[in-house]
Amino acid sequence: MEKILSKDRLREWVDALDDCEVLAPAFADSVWNYARVEAETVIDLSHTNTINPPKQFAFPQREVFFRFERADGVPRLTPTLPDPRPTVVIGVRPCDGRGMPRNDTVFSKEFKDPYYWARRERLVLVGLACNQPHSPNCVCQSVGGAPHAEEGLDVLMTDLGDRFHVKGITAKGGELIARGGDAFASLQAGDPAEVARVHAAASSHPQRPVAELGTVAEAIRARFDSPLWEEMARHCIGCGICTYLCPTCHCFDINDEVTNPNHGTGERVRTWDNCQFPDFTMHTSGHNPRGDLGSRLRQRVAHKFLYFVENHGTQQCTGCGRCISECPVGIDIVAVVDRVSRA
């Protein structure tokens, strides 16, 4: 399904989705991030990539698995499977869109994670193609994506100046468009060519190459024990920025948070965790198999470009560039992969 949506009628479409939680990028505190669209919100889709990717809407930073308490000496568990309203996220950039099916794979391949899927199945991603890269660190095309990639999105919008070209990609996306009714218009004769022109122009911006993508996995495997890792990670400070902001990093920790120790009351919660924290792999014995910065950098890069390829047949990195732009010390995954490949 392909339609045209005049920019001044976007709000009409959003208003028709009144049973949904609608989120769109907003610029606040000097960063772009998703925020709930309220009655008075003016939706501004001039955003660069949001600082947080949309993974949080299926995989929130904190998820309660169940509550526990002790009543008359007997432990009692109460399940807390989420039951969210349908959630529509508008303005998802295609790199982030491509992240979602990668997360879907992780949360369904060996074990279908009910918490993830309770949210994911109610999640509709409305993408917005990039008409130009947002930063020198945008490398979507170098990892097999495109500024207008459809993978993972339910709807793809393309900015044509005063109007959006809106394409339903999945059945969910088609339904969402249908709900906008006559906010949408049919395509005019010149529109398909115009869309193609905008997409081609966006794709023509040069991006930094991520080595020879097909050979990266092998290169990482071959240089697993290379001193290069330690050298490249020498100034890593071990924070969680690269992983927490990554659209495809999905590691977590599970803890019991006791609210009242006398009554054995509390919750079992899942929270984000990440492989760059020094204690991530700390064993009970005190031994840490990834005790140095180099092995932790290697883990992150190898997960994106080697392990995920081995396990799921594709790179996990979708080229959004957040880990590069936001790294406090300038560690650059493109340069890392490049050096390992050339070593």
Binding site: Q61, I241, N255, W272, S285, G286
Partner: peptide, 29 residues
């Protein structure tokens, strides 16, 4: 986001273990 970049980048935050990580006191046999 509790990425702890503020702590990690700080030259004064040099405690071997931070109170917020106190679930990770080093265990011994």
């Amino acid at each position: 986001l509790r990425c702890f970049a503020c702590r990690a980048v700080c030259p004064m935050c040099y405690c071997p273990e931070c109170v917020v990580d106190s679930t990770t006191f080093v265990n011994t046999p």
